[in-house]
Design a protein around this nucleic acid. Structure first.
Ligand SMILES: [Mn+2]
Ligand SMILES: [Mn+2]
Ligand SMILES: [Mn+2]
Ligand SMILES: [Mn+2]
Lengths: 217, 217
DNA sequence: GTTTTTATTTAGGTTACCCTAAACTAATGA
DNA sequence: TCATTAGTTTAGGGTAACCTAAATAAAAAC
């Protein structure tokens, strides 16, 4: 498996490809490549058994594809922990580094690294590290946009994208913070929430709020 | 620069390409690729300024090529130190892992890793890590085959190749050991040496002894 | 229920990195 | 010096991973 193909599987996983069919365009957007390239690659991934692809509908990961993606994400997150905890990188910097290291990591290396890090449960962005816990986290957490108004929740995960991380930092939102959604305005694409620790009112875009995951307290 | 091209530069460096012209065949042998592929790649490396190539004669690294190779080797060796000292890999295992990690390492990452490791002077195989010390080590050390008979020397570096490391381990030779060459037989390709610590006599092949570096005590 | 728009695929093309077979150059040695 | 051999290059070809332009299918709008 080439780094390129590994990244396709990972993106597919992140876009919900283990349960739903992901349209080509979403993959193309995420990876900044042209749609025909995605079609071509999906056919190739089908041939090697990682993906089930229905023309004009989209792609789903096979069981093998899902397993592969999870293992890759585990490596990615282990490196992130190492980079932040031991090398002193900031949370916003680690994604790019881990994006490369993940492809250069054997299973043995990942195992030894995990042992060395003392089996951390989450990456700096709140993502579950162990392959077994990834599904559980998926079930337990919900997008901030899905949280009911008035029900207190806790921020548990932030999708690790450079721009998003900056946006959330600028709005003083971080993992562990207790928040309560007080208003959702779809027309203005605005989500208003009450921030538990600072006791302040924060307004963020609903589009961006999709990438903030919370769980019930 | 692709991992492939980076490895070409590194091999060129290891084969003496910063001072002498390295013939295509040697590169082809080392990388297990066909000679025509090497010709093609050398032309490409010339175009980007890393290599000076004389058809039918061989390739030399330019100043820029040499610098690039050294930086890559530094990354390789830093990872080796990390893998052995912190993750508990054996000296024989680390080369393959580092061979991949080196290409996934930004300068910032290398710098932070070096700091974290507390600026080690050598990799587990005795190779100098700092770019400044690489040249000095090159000047100071000599191939075991070049050591004069009767003059005591110390093993300071072993070329990190899986098979070679096994060979040396099987013959109870490791970095730091004081040895004295007692006989060299070119016909039989044999080199006899007296091992200072164990007080035993050891016989190894001269071909292989080329990959053992020593310095005067 | 057409028409228009959007998404996807097909067709054809490029570059990087690999190959084998054949031609050629350079070194060796009779 | 001329023939053999070893090393290198040229010629031609393949796959992976990208692209644009054009054709086609599906969804949305009228
Ligand atoms: Mn990646
Ligand atoms: Mn993360
Ligand atoms: Mn390498
Ligand atoms: Mn080494």
């Amino acid at each position: 498996m080439s780094p390129t193909k590994e990244d396709y599987l990972k993106i597919l996983f992140e876009l919900g490809g283990r349960t739903e069919q992901v349209p080509n365009k979403e993959i193309a957007n995420r990876l900044n490549i042209s749609p025909p390239t995605v079609t071509e690659m999906m056919n190739s991934l089908v041939k090697s058994g990682w993906v089930a692809y229905t023309p004009y509908k989209g792609s789903k990961l096979t069981r093998e594809g899902t397993e592969y993606a999870k293992k890759l994400i585990r490596k990615h997150r282990l490196w992130e922990v190492f980079l932040v905890k031991h090398l002193g990188f900031s949370i916003n910097e680690v994604h790019t580094e881990a994006e490369m290291l993940e492809h250069a990591t054997s299973t043995i290396l990942a195992d030894k690294l995990e042992h060395y890090l003392d089996y951390p449960a989450h990456c700096p962005h709140g993502g579950a590290i162990s392959v077994e816990h990834m599904d559980a986290q998926e079930v337990r957490t919900l997008h901030l946009t899905e949280a009911e108004i008035g029900v207190p929740v806790r921020i548990s995960r932030i999708v690790d994208d450079e721009k998003l991380l900056h946006y959330f930092k600028n709005h003083d939102l971080k993992i562990g913070d207790p928040v309560t959604v007080t208003d959702k305005d779809s027309g203005l694409d605005l989500l208003t929430l009450h921030h538990g620790t600072s006791n302040k009112e924060i307004q963020i875009s609903q589009t961006v709020a999709q990438y903030l995951f919370v769980e019930h307290i």
